[in-house]
Simulated scan of single mutants.
Amino acid sequence: MTRRRTRTPAGALTGVLAVLGLLLTLLAASPALAAGYRYWSFWDGAGGRWAYATQGPSTARPADGATLGFRFSVSKDAAAEAAQPRAAADFEAVCGNTAPAEGRKRVALVIDFGVPEDAPAGETPPQGTPRTACAQLAPGATAAEALAEVAKPLRYNGAALLCGISGYPRTGCGEPIQDAEQPKPSAPAPASASASAAAASEDSSGGGPSAGLYLGVAAVLALGAAAVWQSRRRRR
């Protein structure tokens, strides 16, 4: 007595493979949608190394001897790819000639207006960048107050986002920049001023293929594997 072999319908398997091929094609061709943003980033220079600040200037309260940095640039990511100030996070270099005062704290500030390639249309960065200044403040003063002490006028939007320092830029505030508008990368910061920014969690709503597309590919792969397993089982 011979065992009857049942073959998996070729049309079903072919259809599964066709859908899989289509999804993989879409996955490969899906463009990255993440845009860059033109904005003032805020940095903490603790330990002589720049790290992306974990608070905004209006809430951060630097201690005596702190070094703060501000950099205007176009960056794709708020932390991992944001451009750092191009001067060293060196408190003594900025505040070494400012004598301590009773009941006051000294805060060093590095203000980097960026490069012309990052400037909004019709504007150019102020000359003499990066700039440094030493602010003497009350012990409870915020980073925003320290900045206002040395770099007025400041401009904020309704959400308290820092939009302009010393009048630059005149307009705009953290606007997205499409890929076609992205400037050419500027020269890297000097070794004395460079340090990896603190890694922030990646924005799950960023560019690239959607989660649904990945799930679709996974589902089709599962169907294909099931079809192959069923075919082998029936041939035994």
Rank of each mutant, 00 (worst) to 15 (best):
E149Y: 02
A135T: 04
L68A: 03
D179R: 12
P120T: 07
C95M: 05
T98L: 06
G206T: 03
A226W: 12
A66W: 01
A63F: 12
R106K: 11
S30A: 14
T54F: 05
R233W: 12
A133V: 07
L161A: 09
A89M: 05
G21D: 08
Q230R: 14
R61K: 14
S201G: 10
T54Y: 07
A198T: 12
F42M: 03
K76E: 06
I111D: 00
R232F: 13
G164P: 00
A197Q: 02
P176T: 12
A10E: 14
S166A: 15
C173M: 04
A146F: 01
D90Q: 03
G47H: 10
A82F: 00
V107L: 01
W40F: 09
A219E: 02
A80R: 07
L215I: 13
Q136C: 06
A18Y: 07
A78M: 10
S205F: 14
D118A: 11
D179A: 14
K105G: 02
G56S: 11
S75N: 11
T142W: 06
A218S: 10
S205P: 00
A148Y: 03
G48E: 04
P185K: 13
R3Q: 15
C95S: 04
I111M: 04
Q178K: 12
E81I: 03
A191Q: 13
S192E: 15
A46V: 03
V16Y: 02
A93L: 07
P190R: 10
T8W: 13
T59Q: 11
V150A: 07
R3C: 15
T14E: 11
W40V: 00
A141M: 12
T6Y: 15
T6W: 14
A35I: 11
K76R: 15
A198H: 03
A83V: 09
E102I: 11
S73K: 03
L223Q: 09
V220D: 00
